[in-house]
């Protein structure tokens, strides 16, 4: 069963990811990104990360992709990009080579390193009759609001800074409009 879920969502992820980098139209690339993000959300559910799957759909597939589409439409850059011409000669083969090398290094490290997963944490609470249906959310909340509460508060400061900075960046000054 998990094999079936893995194959379906892995193909969703890879088709979407390839779509992002080969579609000429930025809107099509953004819609391919949604496919990838949904596939990742499905794999989160398959790996008992239920709260993160919900956040993935709401924040990534909802907010971030809508923000991308909003900016594409706002700027009117929804034109087809010419992918045939290569701006720098020899860049694409080098880029393919570099990415393949990176993937090869990562896969080698994964295959060689999977014997060292020895240390075990305190355990993941799974939703069952004893823990209740919200076990993952409850456990994640206990981790965030006890051990990482300072980091959580700093994140809120980061979000405020990001919002204020973006407003400052995109605001037209009065001198510029006159």
């Amino acid at each position: 069963m998990e094999f079936f879920v893995f194959v379906c969502s892995a193909s969703m992820i890879l088709v979407g990811a390839v779509g992002v980098i080969v579609r000429k139209h930025p809107v099509h690339a953004a819609l391919s990104l949604v496919l990838t993000l949904f596939g990742v959300a499905v794999l989160f559910v398959a790996q008992e990360a239920h709260f993160l799957a919900a956040v993935q759909v709401i924040v990534y597939a909802g907010a971030i992709v809508v923000l991308f589409l909003f900016v594409i439409m706002l700027l009117g850059v929804d034109r087809v990009e010419n992918l045939r011409t290569e701006p720098l000669s020899g860049q694409r083969p080098l880029a393919v080579l570099a990415s393949l090398g990176l993937v090869a290094v990562l896969i080698t490290a994964i295959l060689r390193g999977n014997q060292i997963f020895n240390e075990r944490g305190t355990g993941l609470n799974l939703p069952d009759s004893q823990n209740g249906p919200d076990a993952n959310t409850v456990q994640l909340a206990e981790s965030i609001f006890s051990q990482y509460v300072v980091a959580f508060e700093v994140t809120s400061v980061l979000l405020v800074i990001a919002v204020v900075g973006t407003v400052l960046l995109t605001r037209r000054t009065r001198a510029a409009t006159e």
Binding site: F51, A63, I64, G121, L124, L140, S143, I144, L158, L159
Partner: peptide
């Protein structure tokens, strides 16, 4: 996080999502 039975892996994903949004 699932392999090592550790919830902290999921906690850091939460923070990565927030920082990615910003």
């Amino acid at each position: 996080a699932r392999e090592l039975n550790d919830i902290n892996g999921q906690t850091i994903v939460f923070f990565v999502m927030v920082v990615a949004a910003a």
